[in-house]
Lab assay of single mutants.
Amino acid sequence: PVYLSVKADNSMFIGNDPVTDETMITALNALTEGKKDTTIFFRADKTVDYETLMKVMDTLHQAGYLKIGLVG
Score class of each variant (00 low, 15 high):
1 P>F: 11
1 P>C: 13
1 P>N: 08
2 V>Q: 03
2 V>F: 04
2 V>M: 04
3 Y>C: 13
4 L>G: 01
4 L>N: 00
5 S>E: 12
5 S>A: 07
6 V>F: 10
6 V>E: 00
7 K>Y: 15
8 A>H: 09
8 A>E: 08
8 A>L: 06
8 A>Y: 09
9 D>T: 06
9 D>H: 08
9 D>K: 08
9 D>F: 07
9 D>S: 07
10 N>C: 09
10 N>E: 06
10 N>Y: 12
11 S>W: 05
12 M>I: 14
12 M>C: 04
12 M>K: 04
12 M>E: 01
12 M>D: 00
13 F>K: 05
13 F>V: 05
14 I>Y: 02
14 I>W: 04
15 G>D: 08
15 G>W: 03
15 G>Q: 07
17 D>Q: 14
18 P>I: 09
18 P>N: 05
18 P>H: 08
20 T>Y: 05
20 T>N: 10
21 D>F: 15
22 E>A: 11
22 E>C: 06
22 E>P: 02
23 T>N: 12
23 T>M: 07
24 M>G: 00
24 M>L: 15
25 I>W: 03
25 I>R: 02
25 I>P: 02
25 I>C: 03
26 T>A: 13
26 T>K: 11
27 A>P: 01
27 A>H: 14
27 A>L: 13
28 L>M: 06
28 L>Y: 00
28 L>H: 00
28 L>Q: 00
29 N>L: 08
29 N>M: 07
29 N>S: 06
29 N>F: 07
29 N>P: 01
29 N>R: 07
30 A>F: 09
30 A>W: 06
30 A>Y: 09
31 L>T: 05
31 L>G: 02
31 L>K: 10
32 T>L: 09
33 E>S: 11
33 E>V: 08
33 E>L: 11
34 G>N: 09
34 G>V: 03
34 G>F: 07
34 G>D: 06
34 G>H: 07
35 K>R: 13
35 K>A: 08
35 K>C: 07
36 K>T: 10
36 K>H: 07
36 K>Q: 06
36 K>V: 07
37 D>K: 04
37 D>P: 03
37 D>E: 09
37 D>Y: 06
38 T>L: 08
39 T>F: 14
39 T>A: 09
39 T>R: 11
39 T>Y: 14
39 T>P: 14
40 I>M: 02
41 F>M: 12
41 F>T: 04
41 F>V: 12
42 F>P: 01
42 F>C: 08
42 F>N: 01
43 R>W: 15
43 R>M: 14
43 R>Y: 15
44 A>M: 10
45 D>H: 07
45 D>C: 06
45 D>I: 02
45 D>V: 03
46 K>Q: 12
46 K>A: 13
46 K>D: 13
47 T>D: 15
48 V>Q: 03
48 V>F: 04
49 D>S: 15
49 D>E: 12
49 D>Y: 06
50 Y>C: 15
50 Y>A: 11
50 Y>L: 12
51 E>I: 11
51 E>Y: 10
51 E>A: 13
52 T>W: 14
52 T>G: 04
52 T>K: 10
52 T>Q: 09
52 T>D: 05
52 T>V: 14
53 L>S: 03
53 L>H: 03
53 L>W: 07
54 M>K: 15
54 M>Q: 13
56 V>S: 02
56 V>C: 04
57 M>N: 02
57 M>Q: 04
58 D>I: 11
58 D>F: 11
58 D>V: 11
58 D>E: 14
59 T>I: 15
59 T>D: 06
59 T>M: 15
60 L>M: 04
60 L>K: 00
60 L>I: 06
61 H>W: 11
61 H>V: 11
61 H>E: 08
61 H>F: 12
61 H>T: 11
62 Q>L: 12
62 Q>C: 07
62 Q>P: 00
62 Q>V: 07
62 Q>Y: 07
63 A>F: 06
63 A>H: 09
63 A>D: 04
63 A>Q: 04
63 A>V: 03
63 A>S: 06
65 Y>R: 00
66 L>C: 12
67 K>T: 12
67 K>R: 11
67 K>W: 08
68 I>T: 05
68 I>F: 04
68 I>D: 02
68 I>V: 13
68 I>C: 05
69 G>H: 15
69 G>Y: 15
69 G>I: 15
69 G>A: 15
69 G>S: 15
70 L>K: 04
70 L>D: 05
70 L>Q: 06
70 L>C: 13
71 V>K: 06
